[in-house]
């Protein structure tokens, strides 16, 4: 589904990703872990198409297409979704209206008919139940005055609405208490199928108790320095990143 080969990228002339290789197949859950500043969020941003970042080398193929050629909105149309670490607050725009526009724009991109009001409402109710989110929250201004947990739950709701092939969760656990993590993770698990995949980006192992990865990769200094199964995450939790840092500081 996703094939990243020797991806190099940076911002304002500073190299951050120094050759990433990663393959994700349908149905898989991958976790990328790493210390602060290792390039985790940069990888998420580059995949989603944030323009501040410049790709200087390598390739990313998504379902056989060159992902890097696409604009952010085209990537969403192709089935890529990024759950933001810091969801943006937009006063004056409700989640409902936001999603109505987004769902129909994505449908248009895919050559499908737009949903009418009734069909949209039906879809929304179904997904609301799936991710356990209230209507009241969805009619309020997008993320404005939301708690950390509400913001992340709203991200998961958007994910459910757009039914992506690949969902990237960028530090979805950061700043959340245990209950909030559990609710967010429950939502993610509820929308997993054998055809879609999840890439979890996280600093800590705890989210992986709830969204169990098939593969764990350690990102350090712009490279994946170690890959393994979910046991690797537990190991890292035990030792911290210091061991990785001393092992790979010259990498």
């Amino acid at each position: 589904m996703l094939s990243i080969k020797n991806l190099q990228a940076g911002i304002e002339g500073k190299d951050i990703l120094k050759g990433i290789n990663l393959d994700i197949k349908p149905g898989e859950v991958h976790a990328i872990m790493g210390p602060n500043g290792s390039g985790k969020s940069t990888l998420a941003s580059v995949l989603a198409g944030r323009q501040d970042y410049e790709v200087t080398g390598g390739s990313v193929e998504f379902n056989g297409k060159d992902l890097l050629e696409f604009s952010p909105e085209q990537r969403a149309g192709e089935g890529l979704f990024l759950a933001f670490q810091y969801p943006v607050e937009i006063p004056g725009l409700s989640t409902v209206n936001f999603m109505k526009t987004a769902v129909n724009e994505v449908r248009k991109y895919r050559g499908e008919e737009p949903l009418d009001a009734v069909a949209f409402l039906k879809l929304m109710k179904e997904k609301m139940a799936l991710v356990n989110i209230s209507k009241e929250l969805l009619t309020r201004s997008l993320n404005e005055g939301f708690s950390g947990g509400e913001k992340k739950r709203n991200e998961v709701f958007q994910m459910a609405m757009l039914e992506p092939k690949l969902a990237i969760l960028d530090e979805t656990d950061s700043g959340l208490d245990i209950d909030a993590i559990r609710i967010a993770a429950h939502g993610v698990n509820a929308i997993r199928t054998k055809d879609n995949a999840v890439l979890v980006i996280t600093h800590y192992q705890r989210l992986l108790d709830y969204i169990v990865p098939d593969f764990v990769h350690v990102l350090y200094n712009g490279r994946i320095v170690k890959s393994g199964t979910k046991e690797l995450a537990l190991e890292l939790e035990e030792t911290g990143y210091d061991q990785i840092k001393s092992d790979y500081q010259f990498a």
């Binding site: 604009s71 952010p72 909105e73 969403a76 990024l82 937009i90 936001f98 987004a102």
Partner: peptide, 13 residues
């Protein structure tokens, strides 16, 4: 950031 957030959900620029 707001523009990118909306675009990342499939909404054209």
């Amino acid at each position: 950031d707001g523009i990118f957030y909306l675009r990342s959900r499939g909404i054209p620029d």
